[in-house]
Write a protein that binds this DNA or RNA. Structure first.
Lengths: 199, 199, 199, 199
DNA sequence: GATGAATGAGTTTTCATTCAT
DNA sequence: GATGAATGAAAACTCATTCAT
């Protein structure tokens, strides 16, 4: 036990290897063999020893990316003022993460869609991903009620926001020479205009 | 060699089966076995007989979705006025496709990201996908030059647009009870605001 | 090497776990992993530390069941009169064991057939199992000589006896609501008739 | 599918190999690798190609043994007179099968106990095995009603009968020099006495 | 002595592809 | 051309055992 809280060094090493492989070759081509090689392990059996299965490892990857993301993003979001500010901080800090952990978000984007249809134990993660979008949607509605935002369908807005961020993340991955900061600012500007009250 | 132009009925049948399987279980869990079952074929060997390999089949899937999409979208885009109108028509007609071919876009979203890293023969498709985004980007720049659009980074805008559309497509797939037309209008409105000239 | 005489608490704990797993899932699905979990051990390595191998553990299981069986059965058999009485006591006390140790006999039935073909160190146990049947056979022959039993092939009788007892044990395991005492009496009656002198 | 009725030659070949391996090394040590080797196949994948899984193959083994057994036993049982005669014919013809198909019954004895706990699709076989014992039990009760048999618990009798036959089968397997016919007669005599009306 | 992480051979199964018919 | 049985490499996973601490 204790495993939930204190990840062993080996587990961390494997998760790290998995993140790199996922970001490089995508979920479909990710195998225990490649992860073991990347992590410098002598056998795939070792991964099975430390994780209950492929799904368990993938969930650990997602959890790790979430942990790292929250660590970076939350202080920045909370430091912002108003719902508009928090929306901007959310967008910018997500994109900025690419400089700090270039492979984490790409790995997450591979993992999340492939968690569906798996066994129920993974639904916890799916739910938390979904609930995060619902929180965003609530914030938008709250901002609309306070007059900070204009009128728009919040479901569409939050979906578009999620997709736009993911697309920038993925596309940056194939053109990594691009500066992250301006991309972040431009994307935040975009949604600032899209959510603004009509003059 | 008529194959390039005259698709055999078998090929069509297989591509159709592949689209359905891709949309249902995702690229990673799509196999020749499942496709053969879906298409009512008695062996996977028949798929290999009609296609040069898995990548070839996936490319055929993409081509089919493109064909169908263009058939639906192009008249609507060309009927629109100005770059603003064409942008709206592009967004709306893409989303509206969900009513006509509910599984095609989902299949495409599974296929495209997994074409990278494959053998060179597929690059043609990748290039055309990329060039389509470049065309969109050109149109935005042209619109900016004509004063139809405001100032924004066109790379970010076209990427966000692509991602937003894809996200709506995917999310609709898991909540198919939603009406397509309002989603399409809301999404077009969103990017209308995002691309508008500052007043 | 006091091990032969002084079983450590750990060994007892492991043997007990093994008996439970064997009775529940059968020999083929019994693994060190399941035994370790059942016994509350943190690793399978501890089993290998305390036993020379899987066969050694299985032999320890058999020995433990034998020990427990003799403890219960011997006084009852010796208290009986004549070979007929001893045969009845043997049958009844075996079946009655099910009430006292419901899993022990089932575990033994899983272990014994799978000991064949193993390395020579186990033959000692096999021999003692075989010799026990030979002792029974001797008793039957003795009883025949004394006129207590009728004429029959003692090999067949002792084999049938063994099989009949085992079958009742196994079938009771899947219908544990049945009362043990009447089953024991009926089975003893059966072999009383089968071994009786013709009138 | 026809497969149910017309077993392909390959399937037959694999089942035959499985029967031999099961009889030789027991269920626990039976693997696809050993079966493939025994059957002269180049890969284990071929077994998976022809059977849905290990359980499916094991069920096919059981079905084959049943088929062969019925073919041999039914005419002999039906040719017998009265319930006593049929009981004797049942016992004798089962044991005699050892001369004709020396490995089939041993394979069946390995397979049946290990089918429990498997997925529900196998329960059909388990049920038919159970129902066969119930048929035997019915026959004994009928014979009792007609005065052909004495008084005894039919559950115990049918269980003991089953176990006694199995034990002779298994023990003959390790002492194959014994003549089958006398064993069969002795065993039938045994149960004739055990089921006889008290004089 | 005792522990549990590590090992690598082994398991069943699925994969895309080949090839005899 | 068309079929489907066969192939063998690779997949995830389990196994009993080893070994550094």
């Amino acid at each position: 036990m204790g495993r939930t809280f204190t990840e062993s060094a080996r587990r961390t090493q494997i998760v790290q290897g998995a993140i790199e492989v996922l970001a490089e070759v995508g979920y479909a081509r990710t195998s225990f063999a490649k992860i073991a090689k990347q992590a410098g392990l002598s056998s795939t059996g070792m991964i099975s020893y430390h994780f209950a299965g492929k799904d368990d490892l993938m969930r650990a990857v997602a959890t790790e990316v979430w942990r790292v993301s929250e660590e970076y993003m939350l202080p920045r979001i909370e430091a912002a003022e108003g719902n508009r500010g928090r929306l901007r901080a959310y967008i910018e800090s997500t994109i900025e993460l690419l400089s700090v952990y270039p492979k984490h978000l790409a790995a997450l984007l591979e993992v999340v869609p492939n968690l569906q249809g798996s066994d129920p134990s993974l639904l916890g993660y799916r739910d938390s991903a979904r609930s995060m979008m619902e929180i965003q949607q609530k914030r938008l509605e709250e901002g609309q009620a306070l007059g900070e935002f204009g009128e728009f369908d919040t479901w569409v807005m939050v979906t578009a926001l999620r997709g736009a961020i993911d697309a920038v993340v993925m596309r940056w991955h194939s053109e990594p020479h691009l500066d992250v900061a301006p991309l972040a600012r431009q994307l935040a500007d975009l949604f600032e205009r899209a959510t603004r009250r009509e003059p």
